[in-house]
Design a protein around this nucleic acid. Structure first.
Length: 426
RNA sequence: GGAGAGGUGGCAGAGUGGCCGAAUGCACUGGUUUUGAAAACCAGCGUCCUGCGAGGGACCCAGGGUUCGAAUCCCUGCCUCUCCGCCA
């Protein structure tokens, strides 16, 4: 959500934002509606002021005099009611339009229409060269009897899977390692609801627009989260925080649910695009300060790349171009990890900064220590790790010729062994 | 799931149709007094929208309704508490 006053004064900036982000924006329509709404609002308010003042006088009149004055009041009330209905309708329309306006991207965001035009910022590690024909994660998992996709599909449809035994344990090990990694860096682990209300989905920018991507529990008007960014960012919605308590840095470990509507035929094989996965997500809520926000964006990016370094995986970081940015994002860095079976880097992390976009929708503010009006917070988030997607990289990059998988040393204490698959083969 | 009670300003808490944007206490801010502090006393003290301003409007959980007029009456929803039942 953008500041209504600012919208009025900067329609061109928003139109340009729409162009850069490939989001259709009709600023003339918005401005016309806004103007009309404010006109009616003024009428409603002055009419209401008159009626209110007259009513007060009525209260002091004798019963006989009152009867005489009532007729006029009733008539005016009818007129007001019509105006009020009109005003309410306009307000709703306007709000809906405002909810869909794009946040302008930062100047350092490259122009481009989709992910092929993202700019590589860094490339770390070297994709492995195999002296044998490498297997895909599916082959590795199935041959070790640790992965069962057909039965996952039997239970819940396409894009479902079963991880078994050591592979399921490996998943837990990575998630726990990620949690520890972040707790060491001062992030507070929060266990959050996975089923949230509409306010959370709208507040973080997923609704309206993203309803198709979410599993809805319609009877209770709740949605399954696609990421714990939603509950984590919404925790202090409607509150006025103390500046002294900022920034708030938190992580959550949660399952994530995505319908993946409109991706039929895309990434249908294996564990890359699935309906349900685990993710450790980092969310930071801070002051309304651009410099701070920029720094923090780099910091949460580093939290993730440092973790990939510990996992000894090759990856690259890209500066996401305008056309690949979401409505609310000001800038986004994606981390893509090398996946031999794809013969390319695949997106595993996404670090976004929002300025006050989410904070406005959530009505999330703080009292500045220096006094003065409450300000909207800035919010940011990034993945720490998402599984099973990271397992693709881990299994494929570290596979041995005999079909077992080497476990990176930092992960060994969490997994409890140096190799995956050994115990089964022995 | 059944029965009951309730949601008012930072907190506590009064307020059953006009004199209520809301008593009172606590907290907070400024002042007087004091070597300093405490106490006492005096004064101030909600948020948001709109307007250059004077001002106007909205808000007593939320949404509807009754009424010339609603914190107050009616309906619906949400939330909290107590008792009973059930349960990982």
């Amino acid at each position: 959500m953008l500041d209504p006053k600012w919208i009025r004064e900067n329609p061109d900036v928003i139109a340009e934002a729409g162009r850069l982000k490939r989001i259709s924006v009709d600023m003339p329509a918005y401005l016309a509606l806004d103007k009309k709404h404010r006109q009616i609002l003024t009428e409603v308010e002055s009419s209401r002021a008159y009626l209110k003042a007259e009513s007060k006088k009525l209260g002091k009149l004798s019963p006989e005099d009152r009867e005489l004055a009532l007729g006029d009041q009733k008539e005016r009330k009818l007129v007001l009611q019509k105006l009020e209905a009109e005003e309410q309708l306009l307000r709703k329309e306007l709000h809906l339009l405002a909810m869909k306006l794009p946040m302008p991207p930062a100047p350092e965001v490259p122009e481009g229409k989709d992910d092929t035009q993202n700019i590589e910022l860094a490339c770390v590690g070297t994709p492995p060269v195999f002296s044998f024909t490498p297997k895909t994660h599916i082959q590795i998992g199935e041959e070790l009897d640790l992965l069962d996709i057909p039965r996952g599909v039997k239970l819940a449809g396409s894009r479902n899977y079963l991880l078994k035994g050591e592979l399921a344990l490996l998943e837990q090990a990575i998630l726990r390692m990620a949690v520890d990694h972040m707790v060491k860096r001062g992030f507070e682990l929060v266990s959050v609801p996975m089923l949230v209300n509409r306010e959370c989905m709208e507040g973080t920018g997923y609704f309206p627009g993203g309803e198709e991507q979410a599993y809805l529990a319609e009877r209770d008007d709740l949605s399954l989260i696609g990421t714990s960014e939603v509950p984590l960012t919404s925790i202090h919605a409607g509150e006025k925080l103390d500046e002294a308590n900022l920034p708030i840095r938190r992580i959550a470990l949660s399952p994530c649910f995505r319908r993946e509507a409109g991706t039929y035929g895309k990434d249908t094989k294996g564990l890359y695009r699935v309906h349900q996965f685990w993710k450790v997500e980092q969310v930071v809520i801070g002051p309304h300060d651009l410099e701070w926000s920029l720094q923090e964006h780099r910091a949460i990016l580093a939290n993730a790349t440092d973790f990939l370094d510990l996992l000894e995986l090759p990856y690259r970081v890209v500066n996401v171009c305008g056309g690949d940015l979401g409505q609310g994002q000001v800038q986004k860095f994606d981390i893509e990890t090398w996946m031999p079976s794809r013969n390319s880097y695949g997106e595993t992390h996404s670090a976004s900064r929002f300025h006050d976009f989410q904070a406005r929708r959530l009505n999330l503010r703080y009292k500045p220590s220096s006094g003065g009006k409450p300000l909207y917070c800035h919010t940011l988030n990034n993945t720490v790790i998402a599984s099973p997607r990271v397992l693709i990289a881990l299994l494929e990059n570290n596979q041995n010729e005999d079909g077992t998988v080497r476990i990176p040393s930092a992960l060994q204490p969490f997994f409890g062994a140096k190799t995956l698959g050994k115990n089964i083969r022995a």
